[in-house]
Write a protein that binds this DNA or RNA. Structure first.
Lengths: 197, 197
DNA sequence: GTCTATAGGTGGATAGAC
DNA sequence: GTCTATCCACCTATAGAC
């Protein structure tokens, strides 16, 4: 590949990104990590935004790979539950990427002329979830309801849990939190009122 | 008051903050807005962090005022539902403050020597919610369960909804979203499985 | 492809005159 | 209390030599 140096630059950028977020990615910093001077990077990327765009693009693909695992489940309910597991795995294992995708303001098309939506942006995540839920309603595992509205509730619930953990609001180690997360998903399905499960 | 200029500085800082977040608050920018030079600010604040700390402190008080409204409800369930309403009101009306309090990494005591927790930080929000939920369990409005675990589920759910809206992930106008939010709270209470409500 | 040198920008903070 | 002048750190980006 003639683009091997390009990959090395992206790798260094990703490392800095995972350590300290977007603001930790500077041309100087990336260059130092690669072992060249900052100006050398401009042979491979037009400018910083270019580099960042490619980085984020790869991040979306990573998320897509996590979600895709859930489709290995054999029943609708299994696929639904696995989706929530995969979602959490991604949030915990790729914290900074999760922050960027789901905890940062969504750039509007107006802000970025020529903006191309990725395969796995928040919108397609949402659609993925709608499909899992519709399946469960068809199979009778979930009560019949508007799949899109239910998807909003479910997504908000898992995202809320994941994002609070990523922010450190719970002050729980990840292993303990995973159990809390699973229980909470059960509770979301069973509800808060009515007879105990 | 001898601290009147101090208040004017804070007001300008708050304005910038609400417009563009923390990063929009620069000593130069604040000073320009007040109508003085940047150096003048250092007569009133030791440094930028000092200014920011005071700003955030006031923000926590604002949030506390929102939550406090919920206590006007007459029954436990009413107070519980009003809490969720107040929470959303705050998130939508004070977006940037909401971001700072609930969507940013929680500073660990280690990071800030002499760090003093505020009256309404994530931890005390959580306690407030636990109290509302315990009330509802005692009154029989909610099924008996571990109030803290249920509080986690409930908080995550409303925070997830609020934060996704604040980020623009839903792409819905606030008025429409409020109705979605209310329905979702109902759904959280009723659950996703079992008979329709 | 990579370097040195350099331009041009933003931001925090201090010294000392008024 | 506020000013001017100034320093320092850090950043993106370009020109032109090698």
């Amino acid at each position: 590949m003639s683009s091997e140096p390009r990959e090395r630059i992206l790798a260094s950028a990703r490392a800095l990104y995972l350590e300290g977020g977007v603001q930790a990615v500077t041309m100087r910093g990336v260059a130092e990590r690669v072992g060249v001077t900052a100006t050398a990077l401009y042979r491979h990327f037009d400018n910083k935004e270019d580099l960042l765009t490619e980085l984020i693009g790869q991040a979306f693909l990573t998320f897509g790979a996590y979600l895709h695992r859930a489709l290995g489940g054999k029943t609708p309910m299994e696929r639904f539950l696995r989706s929530s597991e995969s979602y959490l795995d991604f949030a915990l294992e790729q914290r900074e990427i999760y922050r960027t995708i789901f905890m940062s303001p969504v750039p509007k098309p107006a802000d970025r002329p020529g903006f191309q939506s990725h395969r796995f942006d928040p919108a397609s995540t949402f659609q993925f979830l709608v499909d899992r839920i519709r399946e469960c309603m068809d199979s009778g595992d979930l009560r019949k309801d508007d799949p899109e509205q239910v998807a909003i509730s479910v997504w908000a619930h898992v995202h809320g849990l994941a994002s609070l953990q990523v922010c450190g609001s719970f002050d729980l180690p990840d292993e303990q939190f995973q159990e809390v997360y699973r229980q909470s998903v059960k509770r979301m399905i069973a509800g808060l009122a009515g007879p105990s499960s």
